[in-house]
């Protein structure tokens, strides 16, 4: 409170040596500002910046957590290039990202549009779709393991009812990743909330104008709703890519960290974790972390560059 009122009162106080005191007062303010922000600044420096910088250094050593290791130059990076499991983990992770993120966006937008229709019990439906995203990842995994159980699972039971012999899902290398993508849709509720907020942002005027012109619902969707949703989709796309590239909890709990069957569920961060904490190869893992960072960076830049072509902000010429 005092700080807020102060700027008004201060100049009247020291009217005589005006210029000098003002600057010293400003300096004081800066000092206090820095002092108050210091705990957080220190926190970031010590707990984020320092480890970050050190991990660059470690990526060039054979650091094992238990001993400091030796300088190996680009040895870790070179070794990664010929590491089969590393290659598989990149493939799996990209596969997962490239399918799961667009699918999540499509399903999320579609559901948001449905949940935005003005019907009775709208709030209840919205809540119902949001609830699954409140379930912790491990619990989700277990629920889905049961649903996808090859012999007693509901999914295969229904498939059998319509005459299809269900696949072994998580037990089969070709079906394991699709199963995982299916599971990831379970958490789409978070994104729906953002899409719904985006939908509320679209001014009614556009629709009214379209109605006057006699536009159909499909045309309104195509030419008003979707273009004006693109900023929100853009946000979810970037967050989705960053999130899925670091996919860990689901496949780790599903396979106990083995990535079975046939390595089809070995994801990038899982292998990174294995190297760091099971094989005590922290240096190697640090190198992996930086490669992941670069991959995510490149993907994010690509998305950013592409936004000119497809993202439309309201009130901007496009």
């Amino acid at each position: 409170m005092a700080a807020n009122e102060n700027p008004v009162t201060a100049p009247t106080l020291n009217a005589i040596p005006k210029i000098k005191s003002k600057s010293s007062y400003k300096r004081k303010l800066t000092l206090y500002g820095v002092l108050f922000a210091l705990p957080w600044m220190l926190g970031i420096l010590i707990f984020s910046a320092y480890p970050l910088v050190m991990s660059i250094y470690y990526s060039f050593t054979s650091y094992s957590i238990l001993d400091a290791g030796q300088w190996v130059g680009i040895g870790n990076y070179k070794e990664l290039m010929s590491d089969n499991t590393f290659r598989i983990s990149i493939y799996n992770t990209l596969y997962y990202t490239l399918i799961s993120v667009p699918l999540n966006i499509a399903v999320g937008v579609a559901l948001a549009l449905l949940l935005n229709t003005k019907i009775r019990g709208q709030g209840i439906y919205r809540t119902l779709f949001f609830i699954p995203s409140l379930v912790p990842a491990v619990a989700t995994t277990i629920i889905w393991m049961w649903l996808l159980n090859p012999q007693f699972g509901l999914v295969n039971y229904w498939l059998e009812k319509i005459g299809i012999s269900g696949p072994p899902w998580l037990g089969d290398e070709h079906w394991a990743k699709p199963s995982l993508i299916l599971m990831s849709l379970w958490g789409v509720g978070q994104a729906i909330v953002i899409y719904l907020a985006g939908l509320q942002d679209i001014p009614q005027d556009y629709y009214d104008a379209a109605d006057v012109d006699g536009a159909s619902t499909a045309r309104k969707l195509r030419h008003i709703t979707l273009p004006l949703m693109t900023p929100v989709i853009f946000f979810n796309l970037i967050m989705g890519v960053i999130g899925t590239m670091q996919n860990f909890v689901l496949p780790y709990t599903l396979t106990n960290g083995t990535g079975a069957p046939a390595g089809s569920l070995m994801f990038y961060v899982m292998y990174l974790y294995q190297n760091a904490f099971l094989y005590l190869k922290m240096g190697y893992a640090s190198a992996m972390a930086w490669i992941l960072f670069l991959i995510v960076l490149v993907l994010t830049i690509l998305i950013f560059v592409s936004q000119k072509r497809w993202v439309h902000y309201q009130g901007k010429e496009s």
Partner: peptide, 13 residues
């Protein structure tokens, strides 16, 4: 595929 079906199903019980 058939063996995995069986063992996965069992494993989850």
């Amino acid at each position: 595929a058939n063996l995995s079906s069986f063992s996965n199903a069992m494993g989850q019980t």
